[in-house]
Write a protein that binds this DNA or RNA. Structure first.
Lengths: 102, 102
DNA sequence: TCTATATTTGACACATACTGTCAAGTTATA
DNA sequence: TATAACTTGACAGTATGTGTCAAATATAGA
């Protein structure tokens, strides 16, 4: 099971790219990219988009990995994690079918 | 579909309790409780436990509502919310069966 | 209405967490 | 051992969340 950091690092190395090169393309400090690849920092959505581009990864798939990572990390220590996920699923379905008026 | 705030408020009113009374028991400012009930602030786990006690709610069930609320709110705007939930579920299963060494 | 009580709101100071930048440190490779 | 690649930690700035409080508003009863 790969974390988002591992996905990014693996693909970067596969493509033979350096931190320096990728971070320049994404327009971030290479220290940040290094930390992202080791899951020490979280990328923003903008970063994810650019990373997907240069690393030839599917943007949507990467976003899914990102979000699921965040959720998993957030609640993995809860005994009720799985039940909570199920309820969250229902809530999201409900919310999407009952848009909030502003 | 009830939010955690609604659950708390409904039960409090059912029991005929005042914000003042419940907040005293939970040992928080009543302004905070008021905001929690309107989902303007999030309770801590300690608060949840005390709230469950005085409101005669199931502690675990309340925690599930709390966590699922947080997740749902976090990702409801993502197109890939459901897919991300599924992946998160797999990740959690994996993480739970492969404990990290410290 | 007037009054008391219940609730809501917003401002505040404080704490906590996250941001990008940078330089110095470490690791890896030739 | 020299060079390039990567990692680490400190830093200031910013954002976000916290509880406290008093004033504003809403609600209910006489």
């Amino acid at each position: 099971m790969e974390t988002i950091g591992q996905i990014l690092r693996n693909k970067r190395q596969e493509l033979g790219l350096l931190l320096r090169q990728v971070s320049a393309y994404v327009d971030i400090d290479q220290a940040i990219l290094s930390k992202i690849e080791r899951n020490e920092r979280k990328p923003t959505k903008e970063m994810l988009g650019r990373l997907a581009e240069i690393l030839k990864l599917d943007k949507d798939e990467l976003l899914i990995q990102f979000i699921s990572d965040k959720i998993a990390y957030e609640i993995v220590n809860e005994d009720c994690a799985n039940k909570a996920l199920k309820v969250a699923e229902r809530k999201i379905k409900y919310l999407k079918s009952h848009p909030v008026k502003n």
